[in-house]
Design a protein around this nucleic acid. Structure first.
Lengths: 237, 237
DNA sequence: ACCTGAACACCGTTCAAGT
DNA sequence: ACCTGAACACCGTTCAAGT
């Protein structure tokens, strides 16, 4: 089993030709097995039995690779309608599902934040959210701007929690903040001192649910400003 | 001027001793001159005329370095009260200032998202926001959970826009999404097709302002759920 | 067109040894 | 304690040359 001379050449089943789809499939496999941090051009090239330069025929750069992996993963977001539930509950659950998928791979959350996803599965998610917002009676103009922040929120939380889960020093950071908050005196930071532990209270799920409801309530009742010229600043609202 | 023999040794003013503060000051200088991506352990070591290993006496790792730089920068967030403005306008402006600082250095935004900042300048920002929320009549329990999402939002937007500004392919991503949206047919993605261009309308400032107002309105009217046991899921709200 | 080896220009972090 | 050179184990991307 260890000898490499037994079959003269090509031990593996005849080294399949390269293709974008094949590269991405390999990327997903490596990610599931070892995490996104191992999904590098060099590593993938080694996996596909070639040099890193070969991959640049199919992908412009690493960002494009990660974006492709992301859309692949988004195929697993639960988009089932569930007519029995309240529309708001359904949105919370849908975003929680999206969040859960990204939490496992915070590098993908980072990718989603940075590269303007435009893959079919991402669009399906946007479509699903817009449908539910309409069903909930949110005016279209408000949904159009609101869907963005719903996804931004779920993505950021995934990046935040996901990274902390896989970085070792995360607990120390958490403790440092807790310490700082409990250290806050009335003269230092009076309001932080007054609110104290409540700033960090609640489970991630509970906070997530409340935050999404805040967004939904807010976007239902906040009228859109008129679209003004490009040069408008924040001087007055 | 080019000869190195003219003063036997130490050309620079007597190579100052290493210190955490000195390292961070150098880091800020390099960042201002060349961007955060050049603030690496190796580069800083070279700048300080030593080897990379020396820095590990003062900093656990690169993340700690970036966190220290971040708090340094947050000293420039405009925290001036401005009693004449509405409290909500003041919050928008404060977050916009915070956002602007991070937008210039998206790596710092990423750091803020990932490392639970706990430096004095970050706490001052939280304190300032909490004070304004109180002034606006938001119940304390809602402020306590709400301040988090206000900062999360401003940070994510900075990461999103800041990265896109400095990455070359950003325009292509934007175009790809625009194309996908205009491609959406009634059979594909009916609601996306219906909303069309309004999904991407508005200036960044206008969207930012509206989004913050959504958050403020939402957090004013969304009651906090009771703090339940740790094992509560999202099954029902 | 597609594929490749080799090179360029870097990284973070650790270790053993020095002062 | 503080500091260091050298090493380990990697990166992304480009280039010139091959098929």
């Amino acid at each position: 089993m260890q000898s490499t001379t037994s079959r003269s050449r090509r031990e593996r089943p005849a080294k399949p030709a390269l293709s974008r789809a094949g590269i991405i499939a390999t990327a997903v496999a490596v990610m599931r097995a070892e995490g996104l941090e191992h999904v590098t051009m060099r590593r993938l090239a080694a996996e596909l039995d070639t040099g890193p330069a070969s991959l640049y025929v199919y992908l412009r750069n690493t960002a494009e690779l990660h974006a492709a992996v992301l859309d692949e993963l988004l195929g697993f977001v639960g988009l089932v309608p569930d007519r029995s539930a309240q529309w708001a509950d359904t949105i919370v659950r849908m975003l929680w599902s999206y969040n859960g998928i990204l939490s496992g791979h915070p590098g993908l959350a980072r990718s989603a934040l940075v590269t303007r996803p435009a893959g079919p599965n991402y669009l399906a998610l946007v479509e699903g959210l817009l449908t539910l917002l309409r069903e909930g009676g949110i005016p279209d103009a408000q949904s159009a701007w609101g869907v963005d922040i719903l996804l931004l929120f779920a993505t950021s939380i995934a990046l935040e929690h996901g990274t902390r889960r896989q970085v070792m020093d995360a607990d120390e950071d958490e403790e440092a903040l807790e310490h700082a908050i409990h250290q806050a005196t009335t003269s230092n930071y009076p309001t932080i001192a007054a609110l104290g532990g409540d700033l960090l209270s609640g489970t991630p799920e509970a906070r997530f649910g409340w935050h999404v409801r805040v967004l939904l309530n807010g976007m239902a009742m906040t009228p859109r400003p008129p679209l003004e010229s490009e040069h408008e600043g924040l001087g007055r609202s």
